[in-house]
Simulated scan of single mutants.
Amino acid sequence: MIDVQIDQLYAWITGLLWPMFRIGGLVMLAPVLGESTVPIRIKVGVSVALTVVIAPLIGPIPAIPPGSYAGLLIAAQQVLIGMALGFCMRLIFTAAMMAGEFVGLPMGLAFASFFDPATGANTAVLSRLINIVAMLLFLAVNGHLLMLDGLVRTFEILPIGASLHADGWGALIDWSGQIWISSILLALPILIVLQTINLSLGILNRTAQQLSVFAVGFPITLTTGLIMLAIVLPRSSEFLMKLFQDGYQTMARIARGLAGL
């Protein structure tokens, strides 16, 4: 007969509860797993399944009652840590969508937008296209597994119950600033060509005013943009993989900053 004491039951629950808060915070905002199109039940199920697998790999858990004030504080800390790590990787795909916005405006496709359930707002077609390409590449290179591996390593750097330092939030803010630069660099080859064409059309409009630039320029910029997109997009995989690698390193930097290392 198996005899389970109430203290043992509390220890098992606590051993799964604290890691699940951090894992759940990551799943809420992480790419692929945290998409708004994914039902809440699936996110909760994935969080529980990951917790069952990851919990034995974690060190000792503080013996604090979950219903106490200290337990609620630890729960809030773990959710914030997981959300910071997930948001770190989410910013990479935000940069891909921003690159689509930058390219779509000079191409004349800024008006071609539709409601995107992932963002809850109208999104340009090119933004959605580049985001899907980045997401497929993320899955192809097992980026989701590397992200989970980085999450497991944060339990070694930042154990459950440790006090948080402000340096980690500063690392996250610095990373968000780099995303603006990355989005511009991703769209820069196409932007240079399209801006050159627009400049040439502007000069042509001043020299041959009888020529309707709006009638001629739109098909030229649209066709050139699509050709450049077909050339540049397949070659952007190395750039996106470099962003993924920088995202994993930033996750570790955030965890070290929160731990005060």
Rank of each mutant, 00 (worst) to 15 (best):
Pro106Asn: 12
Thr154Phe: 14
Leu158Gln: 00
Asp167Arg: 14
Ala96Ile: 02
Ala110Asp: 12
Pro106Tyr: 12
Ala187Phe: 08
Leu137Gly: 01
Asn122Ser: 12
Pro65His: 13
Ile92Asp: 02
Gly67Pro: 10
Ala166Trp: 10
Leu204Gly: 13
Met97Ala: 04
Leu201Ala: 07
His144Asp: 11
Ser200Asn: 01
Gln195Lys: 07
Ala70Met: 08
Tyr69Glu: 11
Gln77Leu: 04
Leu146Gly: 06
Gln178Val: 01
Ala121His: 13
Gly170Gln: 03
Ser183Cys: 13
Val103Cys: 06
Gly71Arg: 09
Ala84Met: 15
Gly150Asn: 11
Ser183Arg: 04
Val125Trp: 09
Ile130Val: 10
Leu91Phe: 15
Ile192Arg: 10
Leu80Asp: 03
Val133Glu: 12
Pro65Ser: 15
Phe102Trp: 09
Ala76Tyr: 04
Met147Arg: 03
Gly71Trp: 15
Trp175Arg: 06
Ser183Trp: 05
Tyr69Thr: 10
Gly170Asn: 05
Leu72Glu: 00
Trp180Asp: 06
Gly100Ala: 12
Trp180Gln: 08
Val193Tyr: 12
Ile181Tyr: 13
Ser68Glu: 06
Arg90His: 15
Ile203Asp: 05
Ala112Asn: 05
Leu191Met: 07
Ile179Met: 14
Leu158Cys: 03
Gly177Lys: 15
Leu146Asn: 06
Leu73Ala: 15
Ala118Phe: 03
Pro189Val: 08
Val103Asn: 03
Phe138Trp: 15
His144Ser: 08
Leu148Ala: 02
Val133Thr: 08
Gly168Asn: 00
Phe138Leu: 15
Thr196Arg: 04
Ser200His: 00
Val103Ile: 15
Ser68Met: 09
Phe155Gly: 00
Gly67Ile: 14
Leu80His: 01
Met107Lys: 01
Ala95Val: 07
Gln195Pro: 00
Met147Gly: 00
Pro66Lys: 08
Leu105His: 09
Leu188Arg: 05
Leu136Lys: 10
Met147Gln: 01
Leu145Asn: 06
Ser176Val: 03
Thr196Gly: 07
Arg128Ser: 05
Leu186Trp: 06
Leu85Ser: 03
Leu204Trp: 03
Gly168Tyr: 02
Ile181Gly: 11
Ile160Thr: 00
Ile92Trp: 05
Leu148His: 02
Ser113Lys: 15
Leu204His: 02
Gly161Glu: 09
Ile197Lys: 06
Val125Ile: 12
Ser68Ile: 09
Ile203Pro: 06
Phe114Pro: 00
Thr154Ala: 00
Leu146His: 07
Leu129Asp: 08
Ala166Cys: 08
Gly202Tyr: 04
Thr119Glu: 11
Val125Phe: 13
Leu109Ser: 10
